[in-house]
Every structure is written in C-alpha cells, then in structure tokens.
C-alpha cells in the first residue's frame, strides 16, 4: 500500500460567523493526482492555505509526509511546490531569473539549482524566452512560467490551485499534459478546480466540496456510481403524444422524462440498451424524430444530484 502524503483530519476553520471548513477530512496517497472540485467559495483555497500553514485553523489535524504540518515545518515546505491561479512572478526579473529566484528559495547549491532551472525551462518549453521579462510574454507563456517557478525545485508534492483559469484551450491542454508528466515522474499532485472536465481528465481521485464540506470522494466512476442517473437520452421530436411519453416513462430503468415541445430528455438509472428501447417505442407509434444523443453522467450531474445546484453556475 502506498504511503499517505497528505492527511487532513476533521479540519474546522471559522471566520467569524462563517464556517469556511466544516469538519473536512482527506487522505491523499503517494502518486495520486487528487482533484478538489467545488464551486467558488466552497473552501478549496482555504483547505490549501491551511495545508500550507499559511492560515491557522480552529480544529483538526494536518499531516504532510507523515509529519504534523506547522508554520515552522520548513523541511516539509521544501518538498512542496505551489502553483496558483494568479501568475506570481516578478516583472523586474527575466524568465530565467524568476525561476532561479523561486528555485533558490528551496535549493541553496548553485550548480544543482542551475541544473534544476534549466530542466524546468525545458519542461515548460520556454527555452526561447529565458531572457524575456514577464511583461513581454503572452498569457499562455506566463502560465508556463508560473508553473516552472513552482516545480523547478522538483517537489514531491505539487499543489495547483486553479492553474487554468482564463487560459486558452491550447495552453490548457499543455498544462494538463505537463501535470500528468510530473505525476509520472513521481510527484503527488493536488489539483483544485471548478472545471469538472479537467478534473475528470487528469485526476485519479476526486473530492467534491461545497460550503466547506466534503460531499463526495472517490474515483470518477465511483462518484458517478453514487448517483441515480447513469444515462441521459435526448431526442429532437416536434410532436409527442402523451400516451407515447407515458409508455416511455414506464420502460425499465427510466426514472424521469422531460419534454419541452422540441426535445425529449429521458433519464435512466442503470440497465443496458435504454436508447434502443426508447427508439423502438417511437417507431411503433410511427413518430418522426431528428437528432438523437445519449450522454453519460458528468461530475456536474453528480454535484447537481447531491447538492441540488449546478457546479458551473455556482457563484461565490
């Protein structure tokens, strides 16, 4: 069994009347890409800040690499790399100087640091921009620099706090590929985001947060298995008699139908060949229909079913 890298036990963080973290617990094993998914204000960043001891908490325990994490746990902090949503670099320094600065906060040996800096530059593909100042870089290149600053010292635990916010799709894919590569090289990754597709794409295990609480945890399949909906079938149909809709509603595994005059949505719970059975009913009634598509549940459906609100639409 792989060792535990991060263990958060019963964490409570209050800020006045507001409970930012409500008995939050978590365990992350070595080599995982662990996703913390939740809407803005759900407590993801507070969890990260407590984990890094940048924020005190009211109750609970945090262990990193098997040791208690405190504000003076500098030996633990040296093994952690942090990449934030906002680009945190110095405009007055060049790309190389920025990476060297942050790497220098962890590695004192000049030769070792130099090698690490060059490796990080190569990893994020900034070889042609090493003498540029950040202001001269495009948004995507800046994000890469931001990542290089966080990983140059080869941390064992990398924390990425919404690193792809306001990033173009091409850069986003590159960032996600980079995270997977770092994980393959041995780093344990904590990835916070409110983009469920990203979390689904790269995370091996996911915890869904809302209002400071963990509402679900597991692999993406385990999470999807927690909800009733296993398949949503949508059919474009201009005319749907009530008796036909009733017939569909009574098909095996169908638990909900919804018709808005142009589209019929049928939600199924488990079972196989649901689409074929629905189409057979329509053909039997000799009804014409347009496009047909079947969707498997997303983490948004998981979040929706558990909390009653959509993940994407939630605002802080």
């Amino acid at each position: 069994m792989k060792p535990t890298v991060v263990k958060i036990d019963n964490l409570v963080k209050r800020y006045g009347e507001l409970v930012a973290l409500d008995h939050f617990s978590l365990e992350i094993k070595e080599g995982e890409i662990f996703g913390l998914l939740g809407p803005n204000g759900s407590g993801k960043t507070t969890t990260i800040n407590c984990l890094l001891s940048l924020l005190s908490f009211d109750k609970g325990e945090i262990e990193v690499f098997g040791k208690e994490m405190t504000p003076t746990s500098y030996d633990i902090k040296r093994e952690i790399g942090v990449i934030m949503q906002n680009v945190a670099v110095m405009d007055e320094l060049t790309v190389r100087e920025n990476i060297d600065y942050f790497c220098g906060l962890y590695i004192a040996d000049k030769e070792k640091r130099k090698a690490c800096v060059e490796e990080a530059i190569k990893f994020v593909g900034l070889e042609d921009f090493v003498n540029f100042r950040p202001k001269k870089l495009s948004g995507g290149l800046l994000r890469r620099l931001n990542i290089a600053c966080g990983i140059a010292h080869k941390p064992k635990l990398i924390i990425l706090d919404e690193p792809t916010v306001a990033v173009d799709p091409q850069s986003r894919n590159r960032i996600l590929e980079g995270i997977q590569e770092l994980n393959r090289e041995g780093a344990t990754v904590i990835y916070t985001s409110h983009y469920m597709e990203e979390v689904e794409q790269i995370c091996t295990r996911i915890a869904i947060m809302d209002k400071g609480r963990k509402i679900a945890e597991g692999t993406k399949d385990e999470l999807k298995g927690m909800i009733r909906n296993t398949e949503s079938v949508s059919i474009e149909i201009l005319e749907l008699p009530e008796d036909v809709r009733e017939k569909i509603a009574h098909l095996p595994h169908v638990y909900e139908t919804d018709y808005d005059g142009t589209k019929l949505t049928v939600r199924c719970s488990g079972g196989r060949h649901n689409l074929i059975r629905i189409l057979a009913v329509l053909q039997e009634a000799e009804l014409g229909f347009g496009r047909v598509y079947s969707e498997l549940p997303t983490l948004n459906d998981v979040f929706l079913e558990i909390t009653g609100t959509a993940l994407r639409d939630s605002k802080e």
Partner: peptide, 8 residues
C-alpha cells in the same frame, strides 16, 4: 504568497 509557501 509564493515566497511564504517556500522553505524560507
């Protein structure tokens, strides 16, 4: 923030 996260 990033500096505070480091071991310094």
């Amino acid at each position: 923030y990033r500096t505070d996260c480091s071991g310094i």
